[in-house]
Design a protein around this nucleic acid. Structure first.
Length: 276
DNA sequence: CCAGCCCCCTGTCGGC
DNA sequence: TGCCGACAGGGGGCTG
């Protein structure tokens, strides 16, 4: 579910709610959600810590609990809900971790239970394989060019790997490739200089716009106040099978690429050497 | 290196 | 109506 723009939106919402608060209690209802350390130790070590800040790295939320860090990956359906003091809303069978705070309660909810929480002294091992942030200074056209040139994989699964650039998922990869006019099955090393430049610009534009729109809500995504995002109406191809391409009017196609649903325009994103 | 499969889970939707 | 498979925004692991 949540890709970089959704996680960024969640972090921005949580920051004013949680900064400076102390964790007063921890209840883990579905232990497999806790990646490390063991769930009982996770709870014990979290209690009493002060939340000094909240940052984002790729699709991870990073809570600063100096000297520890709490990393959270929401995977497909993870959500945070903030419950103000005195409120009883939002607790249900999908709430798997409950953090009592000095003011209010933070609930971790996850319908499919794929999300993971990590309480660590050093975040680096968990984050070690991530490429640069798409809007950060380390993500340059030169970096993208060199990364693509070394790889023969199809461009879409390569961008989903998180190693070339971090934070894109199925929606924003499809959107970026459409904006750049590149077919999802193009081999990465075959993109020429101008195609690479278009892809570079497209990734940054798509991500920046989705953040400005506070994320895309197709089914499950909600912010900590249970509010949906606004970016779904801005999507060009994702979820628009058979609808007219916003650039040329041709019906948008939906296929499967490496077992992920993939949307593209056959006219704006041609595959050289094939009929479609 | 990479494609293709499995797994982790629950809910929803479309077809028969 | 009811059942049943396919599919859903992610990612780790394994095989060939």
């Amino acid at each position: 579910m949540p890709e970089l723009p959704e996680v960024e939106t969640i972090v921005r919402r949580l920051r004013p709610l949680l900064s400076g608060q102390r964790v007063t209690s921890v209840a883990v209802r579905w232990p497999r959600i806790i990646d490390r350390p063991a769930p009982d130790r996770f709870a014990r070590e979290l209690v009493g810590r002060a939340i000094q800040g909240i940052e984002r790295r790729s699709k991870f939320l990073v809570f600063d609990l100096a000297p520890l860090s709490l990393l959270v990956h929401l995977r497909m359906t993870g959500q945070f809900r903030y419950r103000p003091p005195g409120s009883t809303l939002a607790d249900d069978r999908h709430v798997h971790v409950v953090l009592g705070l000095s003011q209010g309660t933070l609930l971790y909810r996850d319908l499919r239970k794929f999300g993971r929480l990590y309480l660590v002294a050093d975040p680096a091992p968990v984050l070690s394989n991530l490429g640069p942030e798409p809007l950060g200074n380390a993500f340059t056209l030169n970096h993208l060019q060199k990364a693509l040139w070394r790889r023969r994989r199809a461009i879409k699964p390569l961008l989903m790997e998180q190693t070339v650039v971090a934070g894109l998922g199925n929606i924003y990869v499809d959107e970026s490739l459409w904006l750049a006019g590149i077919h999802p099955l193009r081999r990465a090393h075959t993109l020429d200089r101008s195609e690479t430049a278009r892809l570079y610009g497209a990734i940054r534009q798509v991500v920046a716009q989705a953040i400005a729109n506070m994320g895309t809500t197709l089914r499950d995504y909600r912010d900590p106040h249970n509010r949906p995002g606004n970016n779904q109406t801005a999507l060009a191809v994702y979820g628009r099978r058979d609808a007219p391409c916003r650039r040329c009017g041709q019906p948008v196609l939906k296929t499967t690429v490496n077992s992920r649903g993939t949307h593209y325009c056959p006219r704006c994103q041609p595959l050289p050497g094939a009929t479609s």
